[in-house]
Design a protein around this nucleic acid. Sequence first.
RNA 1: GCGGGCGUCGCCAAGUGGUUAAGGCAGCGGCUUGUGGCGCCGCUAUUCGGGGGUUCGAAUCCCCUCGCUCGCCCCA
Length: 430
Amino acid sequence: MSQLQSLRGMVDLLPEELQRWQAVDGMAREHFQRSGFGEIRTPLLETTDLFCRGIGEGTDVVGKEMYTFHDRGDRSCTLRPEGTASVVRAALQHGLLSQGAQKLWYAGPMFRYERPQAGRQRQFHQIGVEWLGAERARSDVEVIALAWDLLASLGVGGLQLELNSLGTAEDRQAYRNALVAWLEQRAEALDSDSQARLSTNPLRILDSKNKDTQALLGDAPTLADALCDASRQRFEEVQRGLTALGIPFRLNPRLVRGLDYYSHTAFEITSDQLGAQATVCGGGRYDGLIGQLGGAPTPAIGWALGMERLLLVLGAAATADPQGVAARLTAAALPEVYVVNRGAEAERVALALARDLRAAGLWVELDASGSAFGKQFKRADRSGAQWALVLGDDEAARGEVRLKPLKQQAEETTVALAPVAAIVEKLLTP
RNA sequence: GCGGGCGUCGCCAAGUGGUUAAGGCAGCGGCUUGUGGCGCCGCUAUUCGGGGGUUCGAAUCCCCUCGCUCGCCCCA
């Protein structure tokens, strides 16, 4: 391509689509506010070290997906691939945790150098929450419910909540050892990817999509069996809590999640509308992370939801049910008034009028073309506006404006330009 | 990073070696120099993502490259 274009996997958001985004953003903001979560914004760029220490060296995200470069001061910088590490860093840097638990949410772009496909881009957007200092199982339930309810309020159906427990770091380590020992006996039966992961990230072998590997894993030791009593009880408490709230879930012992910092509760919300990249929202507990990044050991839980994927699901929901919540939320808004104007004096008056009407809160499209009235009416009609206001030099000279309803049968009327409030009155109460 | 499919106007799309690259939508202009939604007429790609090659001749074949897309991997 000789023409200038965006970088691969980097996507422009155009006005029509952004309207849907804002509907989601607004809904999310409300939910967070009502649940006592405060917004936090952190830089898109962090030291590479933050992600290496936070996410884990053995993960794919750190190993091969980061946008990393050296700045002019020769510091290694990385465009954030996820939000949690940054939020924790900010909380520590500003001493937030010394004021007690923090309930935070964020929204913004994340960057991962991967091959784009359906529901996957190199710059994508997440909305997420982090509850730092959340200890008890009931906070797991509350945080999961927050995600579930947000999605429900957007009218997104057909979602599946999958749940697992990774136990404590010790449980996980013990299980990891047991699993590796078991798999090493059978290494030659594993696919090549899984063989490589034996040393790098053995737990990920569990959700390999290779059929032979999956068959082999049928008899492998399970994570659930490796949980200590306390972990097991904790997990059961989370399940009871979700059931009490009427939130359906499915246990998925293979749900491991890619980032090192998870412990205990891990969950994903998936949709069958998304193809291979089915996860809309994923999260879990990360009791070890804050300590690992230099803070006092502090339990925490959070999740992130993928904006692009959510909008795909939302679009599908809107198409499936044009009368439903999703369709209503994402419907394109239309201007209320279209000002048809032509002639030097009329154009001056029209601009002033449009300004007044906008100040009064109306969405006013002002035709700026100066073309024939017929053309302007055609555009007025296509704009979807309820009203055309007509201003030619005749009206301007008389200090009047004509109000023409575009959507109903009512007659066109002429009113004085003078008190704009009177015009607004007429426009709003037809 | 690895495989498969694809790339013709802002959008959708015909065309698979032979004179001027269909059509639809949108846009612009006109019929209608002050009144829209319908209709009719006209205009809008010297060019087929880009580069190179084969050929008398290529959007159509070959190579490279860029991009999109689906899947793997991984995740949101």
